[in-house]
């Protein structure tokens, strides 16, 4: 099926098997292998990308469902010589070890910051009060991204650093 997806600001036209997931379209067709396949079932978050500014699991979405959508993957966030503040914070705080979950963590962080700014609720503050970027909020809102190396404390520190840098 003909599908056009804007990926990292570039319109990409693809002719895809309807079975191709957004994740496999990025990895196998567009050679954007930053989004990772950790479980392929929405259970780890390694494939997290932003679609129209919202973080989702790219493994649990068909590419053909995204015709006309804007996708931001880690490759569109920053490059080795020009790191985004979130990427720089992950590097500075050692918020990763093996690095496999890292692109998903970073994309998820971008989603988290937008969701906090939009005042979305979480398990941590489900009330009407606007959420604040506390450690507890970060932990709850980043729980959709598993890190088996368990860089969790460093990830919290990185998100705090990034939030300050972006403020």
């Amino acid at each position: 099926m003909k599908t056009t997806i804007t990926v990292n600001g570039q319109a990409r036209s693809l002719d895809l098997d309807p079975r191709t997931t957004l994740l496999d379209a990025l990895r196998e067709h567009l050679r954007l292998t930053g989004a990772k396949k950790g479980c392929d079932h929405g259970q780890c978050g390694a494939c997290t990308v932003l679609v129209n500014g919202v973080r989702i699991n790219a493994c649990l979405s068909l590419a053909v469902m995204h015709d006309g959508d804007e996708v931001l993957s880690i490759e569109g966030v920053g490059a080795p010589g020009s790191l985004h503040p979130v990427q720089q914070a992950f590097l500075s705080q050692d918020a990763f070890q093996c690095g496999y979950c890292t692109p998903g963590q970073i994309c998820s962080t971008l989603g988290l910051l937008a969701e906090i700014a939009a005042g979305h609720p979480s398990q941590e503050t489900p009330s009407d009060a606007p959420p604040v970027l506390s450690d507890a909020e970060i932990r709850e809102r980043m729980s959709g991204n598993i890190c088996r190396c368990s860089a969790y404390p460093q990830i919290v520190a990185a998100i705090r650093q990034a939030a300050e840098a972006l403020a």
Binding site: G34, I74, A79, F96
Partner: peptide, 23 residues
């Protein structure tokens, strides 16, 4: 010294190719 990871810039940008990702 707690220097940043040597390969860190590649990992945080998704440009470190793991086995399945090598072209």
């Amino acid at each position: 010294k707690g220097v940043d990871r040597y390969e860190g810039p590649l990992k945080v940008t998704g440009t470190a190719p793991y086995a399945y990702e090598v072209q």
